[in-house]
Design a protein around this nucleic acid. Structure first.
Lengths: 337, 337
DNA sequence: CGATTCCATGGAAACGATTCCATAGCGGCC
DNA sequence: GGCCGCTATGGAATCGTTTCCATGGAATCG
């Protein structure tokens, strides 16, 4: 079964290949007759241009690559959705690769996407500068989203990892908490590092305990949140409030509390990072640090189009803020500061 | 900046383009010297073959397309992940398109993927036979997953939409429930239709009320689950148990219960379809109809490789079963059948 | 030792589109 | 009426790779 080419269309329409191509790609220099003949022939044959051939000749593919660490993390699912929708506005198709929080899989996706000659790349990178060297050297237009890599000139759009945490710590101490447990993200990511630093800085301004035991290092996945909750709740002096650096770890941690009959908002105050839809399952509702995922996705796409156009947009930091709900009531018996 | 081609590599290595190509694509007829010279040159220049040109010449792209209705639905996120991982084993890169529950966007993705000449396609289709005509006519190897379209010969892997629902209805009536509300999926999808039919059939075997008012039609998204819960709870004779046809609608419905102070498992029994990680947020834990998403994804990829190889694998239905947890205790004051 | 096979190699065709270039036709203008 | 410019068109080059085919040399065999 030889595949259908533009030559078949041209033959059927009784014009040359060049004319057929012009009609199909909307070139102005075409007669009305040629237009109708070619369009009809293409329609009738069910012709679909081979985009390999097309983008070999033009040097653009009208696709952008998107490499994120984990589809199953609702934050990234929302982000992927936002990016995809905005990219559509610019006629880009988004090829989505899921790195599965593995530097190796990430690099393989980068490699394949460079081979596919995507017009640009949006990534929430993991790993260090060295492993990303080949991307940066390739000169492909790139924007980082959510996470960044130190010492690169790549424009990025990231959440404010400080304000929300600061507000959360202030809020918790104002509610009377002195022992606040923190389930941190992996320190190999900028978000993991910045949020932890913000937590520690914020703590230093309060009278709350600054105890290394209260910090548990997770990996942004649910299982590590569960492990963190177990560890923290079994301390000799367990925390009265918990703060987790992303939504999946929060889910894991809260799952453990449910198993143990520890009531969120009654026996233990809880603040989660990211305001995802699933949190509406909770009663009382969860106090969260929220940021605008849609805006982040849109911004990233817009910046990428600028990079593709040869400009060098400035990096953007999007605000995050604390939304106080029922999971952080005043600590019974605690004293406000 | 002219891009780096295999000719540059060949020149640097002092061999012909043909030899360079053979070395790089692992053709056996190459001398040891040629191999080292070419490999070194390629390495040194940072050469990345243009896969447009490659797949123009070969007729294979080593990519498969995946079109799913909604990334933000955890079930599909898990499914996408499973498919992607299994596809990797077969050296396929998965290009993922999110149709956003819109037939128009779905068709656009199909179109682009056919243009990109993906080697095969996995889809959870929406719409009817007509809108999919062009895919089926194109002859591209295709497998349907989760959902099917009536009257097509496309092999599919779907969940058993009957057993789990049957068990759920029996369980609920055994717990004393007579009024069971059902939040159905869209009737434009096979899963929506089959699950509703299963629910109605199961109900007919019991003494429970078979009241059309107890059925609400949603669209598999959270907002419609919320609308369904509102509608059902405001009936003159509200249900004492609720069954929702997917996880997102369950999240929406439970959110409404939380707002209204209706306790899941205490004031209202609840059964959800799909056992997703976020449900661990709930206390008491949710009774769910579970099926093996990983198996579904793996199976779909394996079937697709068979279709690509020219075989015609039989469609597969994967089992689903009820997992009874705390959200469906015996109805206080109700009488078991 | 000559004939045959085998292997590594290079030149060139091929994949299917776009686009450069040359040309023909036609209307307008001096 | 001749020239200019504009538009629509077709032929051919082009994009970067793989692969067919021909070739020459080495190895094998009778």
């Amino acid at each position: 079964m030889r595949s259908l080419t533009i030559k078949d269309v041209a033959d059927k329409a009784g014009v040359s290949v060049a004319t057929a191509s012009r009609v199909l790609s909307g070139h102005p220099s075409t007669s009305a007759e040629a237009r109708t003949a070619v369009t009809e022939a293409a329609q009738e044959l069910g012709f679909r241009p081979n985009s390999q051939a097309r983008s070999l000749r033009k040097t653009t593919t009208e696709t952008i690559g998107l490499v994120l660490p984990d589809v199953r993390n609702p934050f990234f699912a929302d982000l992927a959705h936002a990016i995809e929708q905005r990219a559509r506005d610019f006629k880009y198709l988004t090829l989505f690769g899921n790195a599965n929080e593995s530097a190796e899989q990430q690099d393989r996706y980068f490699d394949v996407m460079l081979s596919q000659r995507v017009d640009g790349l949006i990534a929430a990178p993991l790993g260090d500068l060295d492993s990303l060297r080949s991307i940066l050297d390739s000169g492909i237009p790139t924007v980082f989203v959510d996470r960044v890599i130190a010492d690169t000139a790549v424009p990025s759009v990231t959440p404010d990892n400080v304000t929300g945490i600061q507000e959360a710590v202030r809020h918790l101490t104002a509610q009377g908490h002195r022992r606040i447990g923190y389930i941190a993200g992996p320190q190999s990511t900028s978000t993991g590092r910045e949020r932890l630093a913000a937590f520690q800085d914020a703590l230093a301004d309060t009278q709350a305990d600054d105890d290394v035991d209260l910090i548990f290092f997770g990996d942004f996945q649910a299982a590590s949140g569960a492990a963190g909750a177990r560890h923290l709740l079994e301390l000799a002096q367990p925390p009265t409030a918990l703060l987790a650096a992303d939504s999946l770890m929060s889910i894991g941690a809260i799952g453990v509390c449910n198993e143990r009959g520890i009531g969120i908002g009654t026996d233990l105050a809880f603040v989660a990072y990211d305001d995802i839809e699933a949190f509406t399952l909770l009663n009382p509702a969860l106090t969260v640090i929220a940021h605008d995922v849609d805006a982040m996705g849109r911004q990233a796409v817009e910046m990428l189009t600028q990079v593709i156009a040869g400009e060098t947009p400035a990096s953007v930091i999007l605000p995050s803020r604390l939304i106080i709900r029922g999971s952080t009531p005043p600590l019974p018996g605690g004293t406000a500061l």
